[in-house]
């Protein structure tokens, strides 16, 4: 791998890791507050998995740089500030209600699933291996969030109204998931990652069809938000001050 591709791949891994970390963080906020006890269990599990996936991607990025895995992952999570995070705004938005949370998770899971299917064939073997493993967990997530989207989309008038409102709010942010990262072309040419345009088309087709089936309409008049991963909302700063609070009390300490 040439140095330029290597750096691009590291950047790409970090965008993936940051998305999963921040989404897992938001999900973990439900623990103890879910609408039914069964979801305190199931949704905590999804939070655990997403944070687990983030760790896998940080560790692959560590390997590419010859860094020690655990120390690198912790450094990336606890000692970067807002300006260095590369997650999409989609995942940093506050957890909202159960409709917002579930729909965000569905949109993300569907994207992640399709991307993992392609990454399982990556020409970078560690990437392919990790994607194959993670995919088995995502099958379960997707089944879970699809079932919730269906129940809430078709349940009561109120649940439908909340889901449509959530979709209207989430949609422009969700589109940003599909935006190619830095020098993605280079990585696609090398067979490391799937083509982002093709992935976007496939994802759009899939979620439009499924959400239609559960009675939800994709908004057509979305305003143009800045989609770049270098821009964040104020929510990320608040999230990080919570996430990093204890770790930064004493940076020399082991916890």
């Amino acid at each position: 791998m040439n140095p330029e591709s290597k750096q691009a791949l590291i950047d790409y891994l970090i965008t993936m890791a940051d998305d999963e970390l921040i989404l897992g963080h938001r999900n973990s906020e439900w623990c103890g507050h879910a609408p039914i006890l069964e979801e305190d269990i199931a949704f905590a599990n999804i939070a655990l998995d997403e944070i687990g996936h983030a760790i896998v991607w940080y560790e692959l990025a560590a390997d590419l740089q010859g860094e020690e895995r655990e120390a690198y992952a912790n450094h990336m999570v606890y000692f970067r500030d807002v300006r260095d995070y590369r997650n999409t705004q989609l995942v940093e938005l506050p957890k909202g209600d159960w409709a917002f949370t579930m729909l965000r998770q569905y949109l993300f899971d569907q994207f992640e699933m399709m991307r993992l299917e392609k990454l399982a064939q990556s020409s970078y073997a560690p990437f392919a291996e990790a994607a194959t493993k993670i995919r088995t967990e995502e099958i379960y997530h997707l089944r879970h969030t699809q079932a919730w989207a269906r129940r809430l989309g078709l349940g009561t008038e109120e649940s439908h109204r909340r889901m449509q409102a959530a979709l209207n709010d989430l949609w422009p942010y969700a589109l940003a998931l599909c935006e190619p990262s830095n020098r993605a072309e280079l990585l696609t040419q090398g067979g490391y990652i799937p083509d982002s345009r093709a992935l976007k088309t496939a994802w759009l087709e899939q979620v439009t069809a499924y959400l239609g089936e559960v009675g939800l309409a994709i908004p057509t008049d979305s305003s143009n938000l800045p989609l770049s991963r270098t821009h964040h909302t104020e929510h990320l700063g608040q999230l990080l001050s919570d996430l990093q609070q204890v770790a930064r009390l004493d940076p020399m300490a082991k916890w």
Partner: peptide, 27 residues
């Protein structure tokens, strides 16, 4: 549960989520 988001490293965070999740299972 109030400390899940603040756990000081990733290993502790995963363990704490799993623990709180276990308590829900016990319930």
């Amino acid at each position: 549960g109030a400390f899940i988001t603040r756990a000081p490293n990733l290993r502790r965070k995963l363990i704490l989520i799993a623990k709180v999740q276990d308590e829900a299972g016990h319930g």
